[in-house]
């Protein structure tokens, strides 16, 4: 009897506990006996997560993001710098190229002018030489001509005198000469 009541009491207690624990049919969510446990551990959890986040995780991620932003900004600035430098270098190159071209043209013009002046000089010199030579030749021709004229006169005079002598006359030298001069003039 006693043991029976004990069993019944035990069963009843067990049933109550089952009901309290949800027992499969009811909702364990509405078992208020577990609320204090859940709330206590939830509070611990939230405090721990909050401390982890606010002390370690969030500052670290913020730092990483800021650092990345900084790196990107720096890299962009560096790229801008390098681009400006490249443009500058290109300009310098173009300027050097233009300078070199101008210099080359100047040198070429100078060389051309020099050659022209040398050429002119040489031509003038050649002209002068040619003129000299022409004058000399003319002089020589004139001399030859004069000599030939003298010789022809002499030969004519002598020949005339001989002819006159041969014809039997005695030739007056002055008369013969005058006659020859007369003939030559004609």
């Amino acid at each position: 009897m006693a043991s029976n009541t004990h069993d019944t009491a035990h069963d009843a207690a067990h049933g109550a506990a089952d009901a309290a624990h949800g027992g499969g049919s009811a909702m364990p969510q509405l078992d208020f006996s577990t609320f204090s446990n859940q709330i206590f551990w939830l509070a611990v959890t939230l405090v721990v997560i909050y401390l982890i986040l606010s002390r370690v995780a969030l500052p670290r991620i913020a730092a990483v993001l800021a650092e990345r932003q900084g790196t990107i900004t720096n890299d962009l600035a560096a790229a801008e710098d390098l681009k400006a430098k490249a443009v500058e270098a290109e300009n310098a190159y173009n300027k050097a190229l233009a300078d070199a071209r101008a210099e080359a043209q100047r040198i070429a013009a100078e060389a051309r002018a020099e050659i022209q002046s040398e050429l002119d000089e040489a031509i003038a010199k050649a002209d002068a030489e040619i003129a000299d030579k022409a004058a000399e030749s003319e002089k020589a021709i004139a001399e030859i001509r004069a000599e030939a004229a003298v010789t022809a006169r002499q030969v004519a005079t002598e020949t005339a005198a001989e002819i006159v002598n041969a014809l039997g006359g005695s030739a007056d030298a002055a008369a013969v000469e005058a006659a020859v001069a007369d003939q030559l003039k004609g």
Binding site: H21, G22, G24, A26, M27, P28, N37
Partner: peptide
């Protein structure tokens, strides 16, 4: 089927 058993503390 005991769909609510999984929620027991």
């Amino acid at each position: 089927i005991h769909p609510m058993d999984q929620f027991q503390v």
